[in-house]
Design a binder for these strands. Structure first.
Lengths: 128, 128, 128, 128
DNA sequence: GTGGTCTAGACCACG
DNA sequence: GTGGTCTAGACCACT
């Protein structure tokens, strides 16, 4: 479900948080879905349970999941929040892409035009 | 220089091609730079030389590098082409991001606004 | 179907690519036709399957054929593309013949006149 | 110097005649050059000397070579004739190419334009 | 030493 | 069965 890159230098718990966040925003994990228990996850990935726990705590802090003592952890049922998160996520990706495009000398008009092409479904073969 | 993810299922040669392409478009590899020889690369990554060669062949087909028998392989000196590729690359990423945003129900105005914020350097601490 | 000249020094895979390209532009292979499988071709010509595969890959890159995993390889159904390729092919042959004629001291008028004779069907028994 | 394709079905002597003709028109064989003796040629190619002889006879009939009893065979010194042959050769190739182009539906203007591009040295990369 | 071609044989995913 | 990827090792041409 989630793959960890141990050589990337990025903290494992951060990779877990981003991984789950992505799955939820994706729709791969739907509101109310139960996610694997800390122990199960630890076994699957051969990772210390404390690391998993730290990731789940952060996800709960962000209200992306909620945990019920003795039962397990579940994806938030607040679809409003998910939608909002998804939009925030897209916004930040758009912003940084735009910043990168600017740094590469691309004009604002060029950026907007590319964006509109994508929005209006001009199926230019993306680079894959 | 380039890291291969052996578990991703993506062909190694493809990861190599994309990796080098990124380094060149980045500017990490500059026009005229010599890139590691097929055999050296094979040793570094513990990959069969044929696989490296396949990647280099594809890169040469795309005019991103050129190879000289008995000498080695070099980044293209055609800065025009690099600039053009970089712009195409940004364009396609913008387009697919816009398409994804649309699929998530984001309005066109929202997209353009996020984009302008990024372009004009509003440094929203992006989450990732 | 295609004959390989092993003593020519030209790579086998290149001869295969040119051979198939010619058959398709000729019309000997029609849009949608299935071409022999990699293994069958390898047996027929007593050539390593990898070499055949390399040729097919290049043909697919040029959109002259397309391959379907588990099914086989087929001539492109894009007749537009075939027509365009055929014209490009003729153009480049005309250009290089004209360049050769010029190098041999033939006048431009002479070339155009020969060309018109051929176009208008003066069936001079050509020597070959 | 000349390679024979035994599987092509074209008579060997004809391949020899065309081969020598090409070498002379090329300039690879210059006026006055001695060409290999019938016996030497027969040994080199492992071909019956009679076949070689037949080819030489035809070449002599066309005045492309001349033979001196007891001495050997030589390329004609009549540069006028070579030039003329070369031009005839080019003419016939132009004619048949034009006929082929017409059969493929190419317009006369297109043909003439391609030809002029080649004549005036527009170095479009030829297809190789 | 370099890149380029070819062979041989393995394993996978697809149908 | 099909195509696709990868490995291993050979030989060549070039410098």
């Amino acid at each position: 479900m989630i793959r960890i890159d141990y050589r990337s230098g990025r903290p494992i718990y951060e990779q877990l948080v981003n991984g789950f966040e992505k799955l939820v925003l994706n729709g791969c994990l739907k509101p109310g879905d139960q996610i694997p228990s800390v122990r199960q996850m630890a076994l699957e990935l051969s990772i210390n349970p404390n690391t998993i726990h730290r990731a789940y705590t952060e996800l709960e802090r962000r209200s992306i999941i909620f945990s019920v003592k003795g039962r397990g952890s579940y994806v938030t049922t607040d679809t409003q929040l998910i939608r909002h998160e998804r939009e925030q996520n897209l916004r930040s990706r758009l912003e940084s892409l735009a910043a990168e495009a600017r740094a590469s000398g691309m004009s604002e008009e060029g950026i907007v035009s590319a964006l509109q092409d994508g929005y209006n479904g001009i199926e230019g073969e993306s680079k894959k």
